[in-house]
């Protein structure tokens, strides 16, 4: 198991002001990995349910530990808000589940606008870049990205076209055997149409409106995330994406 004390984590630039981190590949032991990227909205509007949202992230990650494929998951969690420098706060890069420190999520705070496009662009770009590094070292990989938001993009550097190009590159170059991206709206009834439009423009696989925030809904969302991760990971090696992921939460 890698020691994630800083020496086993590497930082990689994505171009522009964007970067991400990941476990040093020489320290990884398995033959294949599913890259799981979770981008969570930390704009000011999530303040009323911030603690429930953090609990949902924890529950998602915790549920992944119970997956039969838990040893083959590398999980990255990032928060996005215009209050962060560059709009993205990477809580941790792609690391094995055993190395995830759940208390790090407690340090997230809400505020600022919603650089949703930047988060999606960096999330898919990080998965692509890390997958290429894995591929070059003969690991097989596939990926799943979740973008959880309660509102529309309020400005940033990336555009839906840039995200679409990055998503297309994900499987075209074959570094990722398959890649699924899911945009999830929570408390987002007012902007469902806009998010649906964004999903199509950006080429995101699926948009799911999770409805209003309640503890029960967020628990279901956590279960959905972990089940989707498990399903994606089990599909690794088959050459295709996972079985159809439920469109409702």
């Amino acid at each position: 198991m890698p020691r994630l004390d800083g020496t086993d984590i590497e930082t990689h630039n994505l171009g522009g002001n964007f970067s991400f981190t990941g476990a040093r590949i020489a320290g990884l032991g398995a033959t294949e990995y599913t890259l799981v990227d979770i981008e969570v909205d930390m704009s000011g509007s999530v303040s009323p349910f911030l603690s429930d949202l953090i609990a949902m992230i924890k529950a998602s990650v915790e549920a992944c530990r119970k997956s039969p494929r838990s040893e083959n998951l590398l999980v990255r969690v990032a928060a996005f808000s215009s209050s962060y420098p560059g709009g993205i706060n990477e809580v941790h890069g792609f690391i094995p589940l055993a190395s995830v420190d759940q208390t790090a999520y407690d340090r997230l705070s809400a505020g600022g606008g919603t650089p949703l496009f930047d988060a999606c662009y960096v999330g898919v770009g990080a998965a692509n870049a890390y997958a290429k590094m894995l591929f070059d070292q003969e690991f097989n990989a596939n990926g799943i990205s979740f973008f959880i938001t309660d509102g529309e993009d309020t400005g940033g550097a990336a555009s839906p076209a840039m995200i679409k190009a990055e998503i297309a590159r994900a499987t075209k170059e074959e570094f990722l055997e398959s890649h699924v991206s899911i945009l999830i709206g929570i408390n987002a009834a007012a902007c469902t149409a806009a998010l649906g439009r964004f999903q199509k423009e950006a080429g995101i696989t699926q948009y799911i409106d999770a409805g209003d925030v309640t503890k029960g809904k967020l628990a279901k969302l956590a279960a959905f995330v972990s089940q989707s991760v498990s399903s994606t990971s089990q599909a690794l090696g088959t050459g295709g994406p996972s079985q159809a992921i439920a469109a409702t939460i």
């Binding site: 990884l28 033959t31 003969e138």
Partner: peptide, 15 residues
């Protein structure tokens, strides 16, 4: 081999 950590022979064989 591209790397020699963990399942390095399995990775090489699979590729």
């Amino acid at each position: 081999f591209k790397s020699t950590g963990g399942a390095f022979v399995k990775r090489r064989m699979l590729r």
